[in-house]
Amino acid sequence: MITEDDFTKEINIFYAISQKLNDQWQLHQPDKSSYPQTPWLSKRVITKLQIEQTSQKFSPEVIPADICEIITPLSKYITGDYHIIYSHIYKVPMLFFNLSFSNGAKLKLDEVWELTHDTIGDTDKWSFLTEDEHPILSLPYFCLHPCNTGRFMECLLDKTAGSYLLMWISVVTPIIKLDIPLIEYYKYYQLS
C-alpha cells in the first residue's frame, strides 16, 4: 500500500520526469477546496493494430498521439486514454483506460480481453480487468482491479527498493500494451 501523500509526491516526480522525456503525461491538480481529490495523471496514445489473419488477435504498435499524417487506413488505429488514479479504498494506484477505434466506437470488454490475453490469460479475468465507473469523470472506463495490487507490490518492495509508483507502472503497463520508456524513467529516478 501507499499513502495518499506518498502517491502525490511520486505522481509529481513521475510527471516531472515525463516532461523531461517528452512522454506526454498530463498532471491534473484538482481544486481541493471544492473537490477533495488526489492529483492524477492521464495520457492519450494512438496505437496501430495489426490483425493476424489466422487468429484475429490484436498486435499493437504504438504511434505518438501528435502524429500529423497517417498513411494506412484509420480503421487500423485505436486511441487509448489512460489515467493513473489513487484508490482511497485500496490505498494503491489504479489504472483506468478507454480504447476506441478511429470512428469513435469504444472497444468492448471482450475485445480488450483479447488484446491483453497473452498477459492475463483466461484465469479469473473478471477480477483482473473489468469495466467500472471512473471515480473522477463518472464515465465507464476499463480498469485493472486493485484488489491484489497491495499484495503483489509488497512482494516487489521486499525484494527491491525504489519508487512504488514506478515499480507498479512497470508491472501494469505491459499488460495493456502501453509502451513507456521505463529504463529512462528509472535512470531519472536514480538521479533524484
Rank of each mutant, 00 (worst) to 15 (best):
C68D: 15
D23Y: 02
D6R: 04
L74W: 11
K76I: 06
I70R: 05
D6M: 11
I63C: 01
I17D: 00
D81T: 06
I71M: 14
S18N: 02
I71F: 13
T3G: 11
F7N: 02
F58M: 05
N12H: 08
I51V: 09
K57E: 12
P64G: 07
K9E: 12
P73M: 06
Q26I: 11
T47D: 00
S42K: 06
S59L: 06
V62M: 12
D23L: 06
T8V: 13
P60F: 07
P36E: 15
S55A: 03
S42M: 08
Q53S: 10
D23F: 03
L41P: 00
L41Y: 02
R44L: 08
S33G: 04
I67D: 06
K32H: 15
K57L: 13
T54W: 06
S59R: 03
I46S: 03
K57S: 15
K48A: 12
P60Q: 11
F14V: 00
R44F: 02
D31T: 13
K20A: 10
K76M: 14
Q56F: 15
A65W: 04
K9R: 15
I46W: 03
L74M: 14
N22K: 14
Y15T: 04
Q56W: 10
I78H: 03
K9Q: 15
T47S: 02
Q50I: 13
S42W: 01
K76G: 15
L27I: 06
S42G: 10
L74G: 15
D23R: 04
W40S: 06
E69F: 08
A16F: 09
K9C: 14
Q50D: 09
T3Y: 09
S42D: 11
S55D: 10
I11Y: 01
K48F: 08
V45K: 00
Q24L: 12
I46Y: 02
